[in-house]
């Protein structure tokens, strides 16, 4: 048990170190480390976790780590994965705290991060494409995708509104109208 929890902690610490630019930048790293390398979750489950993470309190990266850890090794797993993902932040920020403003003003740091930001855009774009292939599976889900994307880009409504609306649409389509095709079941 200890070994499994240590593996969860270390894997998520690795994800934390490699996440530059906020929670969404974690998505491509999670796809590589958790879905492809370890097989601890599927692409569909990642989409589920991000959906729930966006409308529940707290930082999305933390919510996702708790989900995956809990799924793999129960409640201790959820706690260990979460502590793992925040561990590098605590170490790095505490080390830099004294010089932190000076650090972000350094010319080479600014230049390097201008490059990193471009890369993060491309990686998130690829991640969205991958998720889209698994979540947009028929004309209904394509329409819902377009609708929510337009809503989220053009309005400043809370994600809670979109998530509740989408869940309701899913229920109406599947249960009331009996839309055929693959179910949303995640195994």
């Amino acid at each position: 048990m200890f070994k499994k929890l240590a593996e969860l902690f270390l894997t998520f610490a690795k994800v934390g170190v490699m996440t530059f630019g906020g929670g969404y930048a974690m998505l491509p790293i999670l796809q590589r480390e958790i879905v492809e390398s370890k097989g601890w979750a599927t692409e569909e489950e990642l989409a589920d976790y991000f959906a729930i993470g966006q409308c529940t309190p707290g930082v999305i990266a933390v919510n996702t780590a708790t989900f995956i850890g809990r799924k793999k090794d129960g409640i201790p797993g959820g706690v260990c994965a979460t502590l793992g993902v925040v561990f590098p932040s605590i170490v790095i920020i505490s080390l830099l705290a004294g010089v932190i403003t000076a650090f972000s003003e350094l010319a080479w740091v600014k230049n390097a991060f201008a490059g990193v930001r471009v890369c993060v855009c491309v990686l998130i774009g690829n991640a969205v494409w991958k998720l889209g292939k698994k979540s947009v599976v028929d004309p209904w889900t394509a329409a819902l995708f377009a609708l929510i994307a337009a809503g989220a880009i053009l309005t400043s409504w809370s994600p809670v509104v979109f998530v509740l609306f989408a869940a309701l649409c899913g229920v109406v389509l599947k249960v009331l109208l009996h839309v055929p095709g693959k179910d949303g079941a995640s195994k």
């Binding site: 969404y24 998505l27 569909e44 989409a47 589920d48 991000f50 959906a51 729930i52 966006q54 855009c121 998130i124 774009g125 991640a127 969205v128 998720l131 889209g132 698994k134 979540s135 947009v136 889900t141 394509a142 819902l144 995708f145 377009a146 609708l147 929510i148 994307a149 989220a152 880009i153 994600p159 979109f162 998530v163 609306f165 989408a166 869940a167 309701l168 649409c169 899913g170 229920v171 389509l173 599947k174 249960v175 179910d183 949303g184 079941a185 995640s186």
Partner: peptide, 19 residues
Amino acid sequence: NAAFYGLRPASTAMILAAL
């Protein structure tokens, strides 16, 4: 499961909006 059928494309769309 029906709720997740609708949630998944929405989740992807919101990540696109963040992008």
